[in-house]
Deep mutational scan, measured.
Amino acid sequence: NLRWTSEAKTKLKNIPFFARSQAKARIEQLARQAEQDIVTPELVEQARLEFG
């Protein structure tokens, strides 16, 4: 299971509600691909840039 830093959680809250669950799934996918067990603000930002 993935842990989220408080900064990453804050960044996730800045994503519009309607896109948040999809973004969260993508962020967690990116973390797993990078073999990380902690979601960082950088991963959230990477996903945000993908979504535009």
Rank of each mutant, 00 (worst) to 15 (best):
N1C: 11
N1Y: 10
N1W: 08
L2P: 06
L2G: 01
L2F: 05
R3D: 06
R3P: 08
R3N: 07
R3K: 12
W4E: 01
W4I: 00
W4G: 00
W4S: 01
S6Q: 14
S6F: 09
S6T: 12
E7P: 03
E7I: 04
A8N: 00
A8Y: 00
K11N: 07
K13F: 11
K13G: 13
K13H: 13
K13S: 11
N14E: 15
N14H: 10
N14P: 01
N14I: 07
I15N: 02
I15G: 02
I15P: 06
P16D: 06
P16F: 06
P16L: 03
F17T: 15
F17M: 14
R20Q: 09
R20Y: 03
R20A: 03
S21D: 12
S21G: 12
S21V: 11
K24P: 01
K24A: 08
K24Q: 07
A25I: 12
A25Q: 12
A25G: 05
A25H: 09
R26G: 02
R26P: 00
I27N: 00
E28L: 04
E28R: 03
L30V: 04
L30E: 02
A31W: 00
A31K: 00
A31H: 00
R32Y: 07
R32K: 08
Q33Y: 09
Q33T: 07
A34S: 12
A34G: 07
A34D: 04
A34L: 15
A34M: 14
E35P: 05
E35T: 06
Q36I: 14
D37Q: 11
D37P: 09
I38H: 06
I38V: 12
I38E: 08
I38W: 12
V39E: 00
V39Q: 00
V39K: 00
V39N: 00
T40H: 03
T40F: 03
P41R: 06
E42F: 05
E42C: 04
L43W: 04
L43F: 09
L43C: 05
V44F: 07
V44W: 03
V44S: 01
V44T: 01
Q46Y: 09
Q46W: 07
Q46G: 03
A47I: 14
A47N: 02
R48V: 14
R48A: 13
L49I: 11
L49K: 11
L49Y: 09
L49N: 08
F51P: 04
F51A: 06
G52L: 15
